[in-house]
Design a protein around this nucleic acid. Structure first.
Lengths: 344, 344
DNA sequence: GCAAGTTGCGCAAACGATTGCATATTAAAT
DNA sequence: ATTTAATATGCAATCGTTTGCGCAACTTGC
């Protein structure tokens, strides 16, 4: 039932009649300390239940051994999975991870950066908020000379390493698949935001169309925030068209889900009358009826790769900071919502 | 393009020909400093782009202004929502939050506690992992005299404040509802784990049955890990019974989802032949077909309440540490999966 | 005009660990 | 036996803030 007086290296030192320096070195396995002393130190450290004060250490050598991760939201399977990938690597390297959510809010993103900076994290890994168009706060991170790595929602406005998936390719594959299934009027839900992922998906959509000789019809491209309600609204808008689409590719799974609801409410047959596809392979997509065709982003892999690049940069200590750009290949997940013809 | 030399209060002091103490006090708005000096300090702080070193401050007064949150996983809507609630309050009080995931892994939970402790967090808010049956690591937190508050997955083995929902009541309401819909053979998916929430839900189930004169049949209570696959297996087992159930109440939404899949695959009509209900109101439950009846846990409210209790305890500084037990009322969300009769 | 407050600020010691340099002890080399 | 190296540890400064105590200077009251 011992109370406050936290045990420090000095207590250990005192008990062993050596100095704190020796204890410190012993605990850090410094080769200049004899094995005998090391054993003794370790032993009494256990006995006294010594807990190193990381704060003091951090103050001394300016490293907190904590890295900050900023995601728009942690409750999206994709992000939490990436985070998990990063965590795995970080923990192995004995780094702690502090997860922050920007909630796609620009102001909050700035605050978060400041909080992390003043917590003196050793580096930051981030996915940019949807509404962010100014990147000065990220530049401040770079000005501090601590590593910054972006994943998924990245930007070329910054000179940083970025890990993303090939959104263009993913979208292209989806649309090509829909065409192969016989769709000729394929709509697309996209976002007006500056984030490159949506622009890339749109590009994949248009290229796939033109490569297969299908004319581009701007009426079929609907901009929104890509949430469930947006998907519903977009779909309702599309159904009012003179000639309704026979396929919908939403840049988000939630958008596709909204479309599915509206289609079902209006008794359209999916995929026979309208084929449907989303993007992200959110877990719920396999629970819907029909199950939703989508694009898997290998989130865990992305996390690991991101962490890898990050720690590489961390070790290299701001010199060899050649920004890398890693592009991972996504995978098309075909499910009933788009499968008009029999098998695969 | 100025590089390393971080600006400290000493630089400010030097520039103003005062001492660091004064600068420190000025920055902390100490009443013993004249307004004039304060203005001057603030001004040059801006000019020099001064960033306080929280680590040094933390070292000095033993408080990091960081609190640790431990959740089994951040990608479950319930947990991430609670986290968000906590975050809101914490941020307002100028506390940073570090989110850790135990992944329901006992070892990892211990490691996490140690990591947080050595990061010198000012307190810990946690939801216990499913497999945890020994609570010594939490006792270590208490031994450090820093506040510890548990939410949702709690235990009475510790003398801590806990915030939970009335799982008993939620379960009772579900089962009563199923009975009112005409179900007479209601199965229940539960977990063998020590966590009280599942025991409470089971108790609600049995009480509701007996209160309505329905005999308890142990064949209808299936233990599992409550994930999707478990739900599938459990349902398959139930369908092999001589007399199949006409209702299933799963202690988790994922378990209910697994049951739904199996039932649909076997062409059973939901809810006509088998009514279905889950627990947690996970977002996907409204996307399934039929949409899943479930129990909402007011996660955001729980988060806020938890944070409230936590900071109360933090302020009170380990004296008045009377452990509180807050029980929130859940709400039954009735959807098609259980609605045999017409309206509500 | 003097004791007693008040106000505004400086001094210096913390907080706990790390680390360059110095020192003492022992071993190896000549 | 004496110089040279290696080995093992101690000394003391340092990281950037905070804070108890002390000391001026300036009010105030009588």
């Amino acid at each position: 039932m011992e109370s406050k007086p936290k045990v420090t290296i000095h207590h250990i030192a005192e008990k062993l009649n050596i100095t704190a320096s020796t204890v410190s070195r012993a605990l850090n396995d410094n080769p200049r300390i004899s094995d005998l002393t090391k054993k003794a130190v370790l032993k009494t450290a256990k006995e006294l239940n010594y807990q190193p004060n990381n704060i003091a250490a951090a103050l001394r050598h300016g490293k907190s051994h904590i890295i900050g991760i900023i995601v728009p939201t942690a409750d999206r399977a994709f992000f939490s999975s990436v985070v998990r990938g990063i965590e795995d690597i970080a923990n192995n390297l004995n780094y702690k991870v502090i997860i922050c959510q920007s909630y796609d809010n620009y102001e909050k993103e700035i605050q978060t950066i400041d909080a992390l900076l003043s917590a003196r994290v050793d580096g930051i890994i981030a996915s940019i908020g949807k509404n962010t168009e100014n990147f000065d706060h990220f530049k401040r991170v770079q000005a501090e000379k601590i590593p910054l790595v972006l994943f998924d929602r990245t930007t070329d406005a910054l000179e940083v390493s970025q890990i993303m998936i090939d959104d263009y390719l993913g979208a292209y594959k989806v649309v090509e698949h829909l065409i192969q299934q016989g769709c000729r009027r394929i709509a697309h839900f996209t976002s007006p935001k500056k984030v490159s992922i949506f622009k890339e998906r749109l590009r994949g959509y248009t290229d796939a169309l033109s490569d297969h000789g299908i004319p581009y019809d701007e009426d079929l491209v609907v901009q929104s925030n890509l949430q469930l309600v947006d998907g519903r609204e977009s779909m309702e808008k599309l159904l009012k068209l003179k000639e309704r689409p026979d396929g919908v590719f939403s840049a988000s799974d939630y958008g596709a889900m909204g479309a599915m609801q509206v289609l079902k409410e209006n008794k359209y047959k999916i995929p026979q009358e309208v084929a449907l596809a989303g993007f992200s392979n959110d877990p719920f997509t396999s629970f819907t009826d029909p199950a939703l065709t989508t694009v898997d982003q290998f989130s865990m892999t992305m996390g690991k790769k991101t962490a890898e690049i990050f720690f590489e940069q961390l070790k290299s200590g701001d010199k060899t900071a050649v920004p890398q750009k890693i592009v991972l290949k996504p995978e098309l997940i075909i499910r009933e919502s788009s499968l008009k013809k029999g098998s695969l």
